[in-house]
């Protein structure tokens, strides 16, 4: 340490370029270092700064609108009367379907791929396919829903169609996260169970899955958050602009929080912009809480291991 600092001073005292065969000045190199550090630090902060501005801007517009009326009223073409209730209920319905469909199917698929699947071409294909599906734009899922679920299956522009499409959309995310969690369970756990005469499923059901749960849960919550905020595929299958009634069942037409926000954003009146901002405040609160919960869960889990 002391040696390097004396070297710095020596280099500084000499004329640049006279330090034997080594022409660059260490002082200048350290200057570049400080500049670079500042640069990458700024890069890290810039996204967060934008997030901060976004939250403040939306909050400033939206918070004054939040009222009992906002949460309990139906949709309306008139900004004065418009409320968020059908959108909130619609999102809850969608979330319910996704919970029932995507979570079990995703976990099951992950367990199959991680614990049962042999290394053959079909399973390799499934694996590549899942990572590709994770990168397919969400609007494409909307077209899948429109072409297959709405028309071919005849489910119409319903809550069920919306829920199923969101399920397919987040399935790859759940599978990938759960696989990682399952893979992280040490082999010795499985072997301990096998050595007692447990079947493969008994070992998985009683030991592997409980240990993989926190990791799988984290990924699943993040995926569910994504489903709650997803807009494009729901527009494609035809969620309605505003609802003057509450959704009645699986085949009811519906709206959802992001859809309602999108529609309000598209209205020219400023009152609607404020409604959109209020909707965003609600949506962001839900997502911040669930994402923070997921991240907290993961950190707790990682520290324990």
């Amino acid at each position: 340490m002391s040696q390097s600092s004396t070297e710095v001073t020596r280099q500084k005292e000499q004329e640049p370029g006279t330090g034997g065969n080594f022409k660059t000045s260490v002082g200048a190199r350290h200057g570049w270092d400080r500049f670079f550090t500042a640069l990458v630090f700024a890069a890290t902060l810039i996204g967060l700064a934008v997030l901060g501005v976004l939250l403040v801007d939306v909050g400033r517009q939206g918070v004054p609108v939040l009222s009992w009326h906002f949460f309990t009223s139906l949709g309306s073409a008139d900004a004065e009367n418009a409320g968020f209730l059908p959108a909130i209920l619609g999102s809850l319905w969608l979330l319910g379907i996704v919970l029932i469909v995507a979570v079990p199917v995703g976990i099951a698929a992950a367990v199959y791929l991680e614990e049962y699947a042999n290394d053959n071409w079909l399973n390799r294909l499934i694996e590549i396919n899942i990572s590709n599906l994770a990168g397919v734009p969400s609007i494409i899922y909307g077209l899948l829903g429109l072409g297959v679920f709405v028309y071919i299956f005849g489910l119409g522009r319903s809550i069920l169609t919306g829920g199923l499409i969101l399920s397919l959309l987040i399935l790859p995310v759940i599978i990938i996260a759960t696989r990682e969690a399952v893979r992280a369970v040490p082999q010795s756990v499985r072997e301990g169970a096998y050595a007692l005469g447990a079947t493969q499923w008994e070992a998985i059901r009683h030991h592997v899955l409980p240990q993989a749960l926190p990791g799988a849960l984290t990924g699943t919550i993040l995926a569910l958050s994504r489903a709650i905020g997803e807009t494009a595929p729901l527009i494609a299958i035809g969620a309605v602009p505003y609802m003057t009634f509450l959704p009645e069942g699986l085949l009811s037409s519906f709206t959802a929080m992001p859809i309602q926000i999108y529609n309000w954003t598209g209205e020219p009146e400023e009152a609607f912009q404020n409604l959109a901002a209020a909707g965003i405040v609600v949506l962001m609160l839900v997502l911040l809480v669930s994402n923070a919960g997921a991240i907290w869960l993961r950190n707790k889990f990682q520290r324990r291991n």
Binding site: S188, V189, E191, G192, A195, G197, A198, H207
Partner: peptide
């Protein structure tokens, strides 16, 4: 093999109790 392993038990190098 499941039945075999009940009749022939095994203790491993590193203790691996269940959680």
């Amino acid at each position: 093999p499941v039945r075999i392993r009940r009749r022939i038990g095994m203790v491993f190098q590193k203790p691996n109790p269940f959680s």
